[in-house]
Amino acid sequence: MASLIRARGLIKRFGDFTAVDGIDVDVRRGEAFGFLGPNGAGKSSTMRMIGCVSPPSGGVLEILGLDPVRDGPAIRAKLGVCPQLDNLDIELTVRENLTTYARFFGIARKVARRRADELLEFVQLTERADSKVEPLSGGMKRRLTIARALVNEPEIVLLDEPTTGLDPQARHLVWERLFRLKQQGVTLVLTTHYMDEAEQLCDRLVVMDGGRIAAEGSPRELIERYSTREVVELRFNAESQEPYASKLEGVGERLEVLPDRVLLYVADGDEAVAEVHRRSLSPASVLVRRSSLEDVFLRLTGRTLVE
């Protein structure tokens, strides 16, 4: 089936700086597609190009079969955009934020009012419909921004870090609503640097780093390809964990020494722990856990903070 979003060698430059450096992306109808990556990886620049507010510097980009530079307004009419920072109108009421925004899409006033009521129901803000936006909590504002992105019944919803800065309850509520949207067949494209968010929501994702795509696949595929089934975290009571690296040689497929602990990437965690004890090593604490997307992410994008 044809892709809703198709990018080939897509490039975005700002002066000498290349934010997006030749990426290939295909987003299919009805899937939830994620862009993962550390800050500055090029996720938001990519999202802005898909949102038709930022012309590509090179490569091919097609959205719904149209050219974002030539057909920007026609594409935007079918997109819903939930930006990273809420840009709601704090002077207007919750409902007015939806109805005035609907008018930008040429939606009749009557239809706009009805749709606003339905959407407020959907994001559980009906009781706040007539209150101003300013006093709302972060989670409520975020839900209202999502509702606003749905006011034109979009084919694709773009969500730039949808739950950044929200408390756990608010995040779970947002996830649950987004999951419902996905069930209704809406195509979701989101960026995040939260691995749990990506695992919760994304059918498929790409990991971006330095403007390029470092890996692509479903969360499960990525874990299988770039990590092992389980991870053993060992903590030794010592100044440095470094000396233990050689003693743990060969226990797992891969070993990583952190300042406070040693990670063993293994197929079977319990078997690996037994081997550690056979080598008469006695770590102060042992944790066996399943590999997560976070392990993949850190392997691909590194642990060093690049700012």
Binding site: G72, P73, V81, N87, D89, I90, F104, R148
Partner: peptide
């Protein structure tokens, strides 16, 4: 501050 122009730019407005 409010960045409302950017919200408008995301809609099909020129």
């Amino acid at each position: 501050w409010l960045k409302t122009y950017f919200a408008q730019a995301a809609a099909p407005l020129r």
